[in-house]
Nucleic acid binder design. Sequence first.
DNA 1: CAGGGTCTGTACGTTGGCGCGCATATCGCA
DNA 2: TGCGATATGCGCGCCAACGTACAGACCCTG
Lengths: 248, 248
Amino acid sequence: MPRTHDPLQNYLLAALPEDDFARLRPNLELVPMSPKQVLYESGGRMRHVYFPTTSIVSLLYVMENGSTAEIAVVGWEGILGISLFMGGETTPSRAAVQSAGHGYRMKSKLLQQEFSRGGKVMQLLLRYTQALITQITQTAVCNRHHSVEQQVCRRLLLGLDRVRAPELTMTQESLAHILGVRREGVTVAAGRLQQAGVIRYSRGRISILDREGLEKLACECYGVVQREFERLLPGIPLGRDPRTPAHD
Amino acid sequence: MPRTHDPLQNYLLAALPEDDFARLRPNLELVPMSPKQVLYESGGRMRHVYFPTTSIVSLLYVMENGSTAEIAVVGWEGILGISLFMGGETTPSRAAVQSAGHGYRMKSKLLQQEFSRGGKVMQLLLRYTQALITQITQTAVCNRHHSVEQQVCRRLLLGLDRVRAPELTMTQESLAHILGVRREGVTVAAGRLQQAGVIRYSRGRISILDREGLEKLACECYGVVQREFERLLPGIPLGRDPRTPAHD
DNA sequence: CAGGGTCTGTACGTTGGCGCGCATATCGCA
DNA sequence: TGCGATATGCGCGCCAACGTACAGACCCTG
């Protein structure tokens, strides 16, 4: 856990022009986020938007039979609650904290006001939304065409980029739920990755030993999303050394 | 093929306030759209935005090995080129005409100007984009969890809503490409649907005999998307009687 | 330090979808 | 009217992922 908390740990907030950020700052409230905590229920009202800093949040679709499928991941690079400025107010998916940490929240109304001012805030939020669309798109593609092992790699990399550390906290069980596959399927995939020396798995703690190797074993989907985030969100320090600050 | 062409056959154009539409009208150019025609290549420049009226366009992701997966469908209810106002200018996916027909196009620059005026044009485009996100999301979910047969049903219904006729022009081969599955898989699924009396298939022409039955055999994904389109785009005549005009 | 809970590893038969090959049916056109 | 092209139907073996069941490893707590 980080010594200090700072809204600038969130890329979107950090990328705002100074005066925009200064205006927002007083309305940002630091909140702890605990695993499994549900920020938004499917179709439910959204009172706040969230800017994660050290937490990771899953966007999940919950099927009628109760099983789930993650459609996107949001961490320090993003925001939760895009439907507030897209105009729909809600979405048919659930936002659930996947990895413990912190974030800042802000009243929905306020964000909507900021958005409707236009300018850089709006531009940034829309570009982020497009990046998110790409992530959802690649989830669809990956679900269709790639093996469980490849999907595990992709998901680990997405997680890695959002914790900025070579370690993830996620049991095989929860990873399976996220991907919408069997726990055993994840076990064998993880076993192979461990065999290959790219990760080490131990009771909910995944250490990444060889990130490059992991990227090689992943399908193209991860790269597409990563490049698109970098293209759309200038200066975003994705996939670089964890210690690199957001602004150099 | 319709006797007359009218930009108001496109929902988004029809839903605009009169003065907004009047301003746009002179810049709309009627264009025929032939099957397999590529409107945008992945990552390619977008000179125009398109408002389909009688055509259907697929958003496809083309994988490195050349195989494809459709991530969304756009017809008379939508617009092609959302990344122009989302700020990214391009997307990593391809837009290819799936069903012949017509549409109106407009210079990208002009749409961007209209969007940045804010107001109803922007609001409408953003709400449509959110609906599109839902469609992509459900594609991801469906790819993960549902059988080929269910996906065929879903896709047929999506197509039906966009031709406003109880008949689709689509070979099993092309449907297979769209869904990213084998042609034979589609054949057996279509065979069962035919057996069940909900459709009749004949050399690229699919007649829907029992739409309700088709909806019952489809998975929840279609309904989720349909309801979300209706919620986000007020007055959109989805899934109703083909003859019903957009405005009553 | 014992015992219960959690997490991970492994084995089995089952199944949905894949890849391939080929047979049949239908259409357009020469 | 006959031929090639296209579209559909079907049968095979194969494999990845599924469902189920259970065993071992590890951790925390009492």
